[in-house]
Design a protein around this nucleic acid. Structure first.
Lengths: 272, 272
DNA sequence: TAAATAGTGTCTCTGAGACATTATATT
DNA sequence: AATATAATGTCTCAGAGACACTATTTA
């Protein structure tokens, strides 16, 4: 945005303007980064090295610079954390968390984002580092109001600040958007089969797609969802007929009517 | 949130913690307050008295206090601006706007909210004041990237900062939520007829509901949308059969499948 | 050829669109 | 009685759920 003063009077006013005594706040940009690894929906978390919440797990993120927006900050953090080319990655604003004492040090307001990464063949940069780790969302305790209550001996990681709430909100955002958008393709590489796409849905929703045939019909009949290629899977997942490969449609089409997730998000249903 | 330090070591660390040199911003909470007056969807705007954007129209809002969240700040601003009991009003976070130079004075980050007010029989507090006014959304120019371009002689108000974008986003949020939620009842008083509810939809969408019968079916068959009362309209809108009165269902039910707005939001269609 | 995965055909049932009809008020 | 608004009945068509079947690969 470029602001044009109305005239010399305002020009002078602006040049001599001194910020007054406004309540001052630090702004951070956090990212709930989702991917699917080994059939499980995962979130990237970073182990904190210092106080507060030392040894707790936090979302990747950091302070927003003076010359960048929250979205630009989020993309920069993502680049730094994952060392992956962040160009094509889906990144959207989730919500802003501004409870006064969410950080015991000072007033920190966090603009949270949701990002989606395809399952990379090569491990991402920070993954080797001991302080960054992909956690399966099913291994996180997100419903507990106060994650600090957990015993350190507990098998589930303890989340710092209000990040359990943020992850929970991000998860619900993604699950909800799957119903009426083509977001699921962001979890996949350039080309993919319809079976793979269906598995993405099942993994994210934690429930089986009611019927494969209807799923195919829905996807193929939605203009802009997928585009056919003339390729087939070269190395099928094992036995069985090779599948046709598709490409993401590109456009941000809306599913009309929406696809519905029937059951609650229980992983047992998939395994069965 | 109450944070409990892990032990005396962290306790001491926290007590002696001095905020470092983090980039600091000012945080404001803005509200896109919608209501329906005389059959038109309206937004409350306030005329700015000082630089920058003097004489431009801005969303009600202001700085968030140190001891309140953005949502609490929004509710407080709303109370101050409208002098209406703000208890039962629908208020939700919309998005956060953080472009570095959106305010020429200093770095201001705005958490925008959407609020909905029923059409009050009594005019709201600020409505008498010369500097606050309900604007029909159709009388606003929201699509223009740079609202400052308008000639002052233009019949449409010029919006300050990036508030045209915020109003546009808020409008789209409300229109979208009408499709799959019972939000429309928030525009209405305690009891209302189904015709009134349908008019709310038509006004917000700017398009006629395709068929009255299907609308009734949809509303009545959605559990938790409306609850019947044993009352009828006492003073009908003119001639005609009195209508049964309903009450909002209370629960935040989701419409499944969603109701669709067919046509684009053109007001001409309603008038016809 | 058996097993496994991919893909097609089609019947049914739900619900939205559309049209017609009945009901209850005012003037 | 004429007119206006509210409410009900029902036919049709699109699309989701369900079941059966065909196709193409590997072991």
């Amino acid at each position: 945005m470029t602001y044009r003063p109305s005239g010399p009077e305002e020009q002078r006013w602006l040049e001599h303007y001194k910020p007054g005594d406004f309540p001052s706040i630090s702004l951070t940009s956090d990212v709930v980064l989702f991917t699917i690894r080994q059939g499980a929906l995962c979130v990237l978390l970073v182990k904190r090295g210092g106080f507060p919440y030392r040894d707790y797990w936090a979302l990747p993120g950091g302070f927003v610079n003076q010359d960048e927006s929250a979205a630009e900050g989020a993309r920069r953090e993502l680049q730094e954390e994952t060392l992956v080319d962040v160009e094509g990655i889906h990144l959207e604003q989730l919500a802003t968390y501004s409870e006064p004492y969410r950080d015991p040090r000072m007033r920190v307001v966090s603009v949270a984002h949701v990002a989606i990464l395809p399952d990379m063949p090569t491990p991402i940069g920070s993954d080797d580092a001991a302080d960054a780790h992909w956690w399966a969302v099913d291994d996180l305790n997100l419903d507990d109001e106060d994650a600090t209550e957990y015993e350190p001996a507990h098998d589930k990681p303890r989340l710092a600040f209000d990040h359990a709430k943020i992850v929970k909100d991000g998860l619900e955002r993604v699950r909800a958007k799957f119903e009426y958008s083509t977001l699921a393709t962001k979890f996949l590489d350039d080309t993919f089969s319809l079976s793979e796409l269906q598995r993405i849905y099942e993994t994210v929703w934690g429930a089986p797609i009611v019927s494969t045939e209807n799923f195919r019909r829905k996807v193929l009949s939605t203009p802009g969802f997928v585009m056919p290629t003339d390729q087939k899977t070269v190395a099928p997942s094992g036995m069985g007929r090779p599948s046709l490969l598709y490409r993401a449609g590109g456009g941000d089409t809306l599913l009309q009517p929406a696809m519905l997730r029937s059951a609650p998000n229980r992983r047992e249903e998939i395994a069965a």
